[in-house]
């Protein structure tokens, strides 16, 4: 049996509700650094018993190791869904309040299209958090339209259609996965078209719009704990690094130039000590800065 078939079978069993996980952690009550209730998979009969005993802490990482750590777009940059999941823990945001007007879907600059695809994916997450199937379908259609203008359409259109189908059937959980998969499909298609430089712009567009929505909600429902979620200094720092590696032609795009310049300000706003919380004023400044960028990115004639 091939490994591919093996895992597919296993996941099919999971889909059918077969009991997969019964291995109790041997550690006592979960610490604050421990996810509650997660259970690792049951080992195969031939495998040794999995080790779930806490082990001795590893040695600290050196500054060289920290500096040389891999930074991978699809793992290092959190998706909008992760930020919203964290915010949903302590509150029940009315995500419909964070909608924006529909954006144009005809742009001539590929950089601008990439930024807007990311923004639309974030819009999709907002709509699905609001469990608003019509809004999700509208956004799915806009994503398809933009994807067509990037000529990455075939696989992305299939994904976009899935988004619309899932929304039709109110399959919210499936939609979360489909939205992220759609975003990655766009990125993959860009890579295949030798437009890999634009991949980071998709992520950046999504981060800006996601942060715009979340900071907007926090600004209107301020608590220090919610405000602490906005601490994301490494993301902006990474985005700024990547922007410097864009081809000269892309960097010279007036919109890209402007977004790059404004990332400096954004970095300041999301960089604060781990034990501090931004004030309400700080959150409002972040909301204002990201809203300006969102508007600029989606403007038909971006300056």
């Amino acid at each position: 049996m091939s490994p591919r078939l093996s895992v597919a079978t296993l996941l099919l069993l999971a889909a059918l509700g077969a009991p997969l996980a019964a291995q109790e952690s041997s550690s006592s009550a979960p610490s604050s650094a421990t996810p509650a209730s997660a259970q690792p998979p049951e080992p195969e009969p031939s495998a040794e018993t999995p080790d779930t005993e806490p082990t001795a802490p590893a040695a600290p990482l050196t500054s060289a190791e920290l500096g040389n750590a891999f930074r991978i777009d699809t793992l290092t940059i959190p998706g909008p869904g992760e930020l919203m999941a964290a915010l949903n823990k302590g509150s029940r945001p009315n995500w419909q309040n964070e909608y924006r007007e529909p954006i144009p879907t005809t742009f001539s600059s590929r950089a601008q299209i990439a930024l807007n695809v990311g923004g639309l994916i974030a819009d999709g997450y907002i709509a699905l958090e609001a469990e608003d199937s019509q809004q999700v379908k509208n956004i799915g259609k806009d994503i398809i339209t933009l994807a067509k203008s990037l000529a990455v359409s075939d696989s992305v259109i299939a994904r976009g259609n899935s988004i619309i189908d899932f929304a039709e059937n109110n399959e919210w959980s499936a939609l979360k996965e489909e939205l992220e998969a759609t975003q990655n499909e766009v990125k993959l298609a860009l890579e295949q078209q030798h437009d890999g430089d634009l991949v980071w712009l998709v992520s950046l567009g999504g981060w800006i719009r996601g942060t715009d929505a979340v900071s907007g909600w926090i600004a209107n429902n301020y608590t220090p704990d919610a405000a602490r979620l906005l601490r994301q200094p490494a993301i902006i720092s990474l985005m700024r690094e990547r922007m410097k590696t864009l081809p000269d032609k892309v960097q010279a795009d007036p919109l890209v130039e402007n977004v790059t310049r404004k990332l400096d300000n954004l970095e300041t706003l999301v960089s604060f000590p781990p034990d501090a919380a931004p004030t309400l004023d700080d959150v409002k400044k972040l909301k204002e800065a990201t809203s300006d960028l969102v508007e600029e990115i989606s403007k038909k004639e971006a300056k």
Binding site: P35, A36, A38, L61, E65, L66, N68, A69, F70, R71, I72, L75, T76, I77, P78, E82, L83, A85, A86, L87, K89, G90, D225, R228, L229, Q232, A234, I235, L238
Partner: peptide, 11 residues
């Protein structure tokens, strides 16, 4: 080693 960015409250 890979860098990730996490949110308090999530598991």
């Amino acid at each position: 080693i890979i860098q990730v960015n996490l949110f308090a409250g999530n598991q």
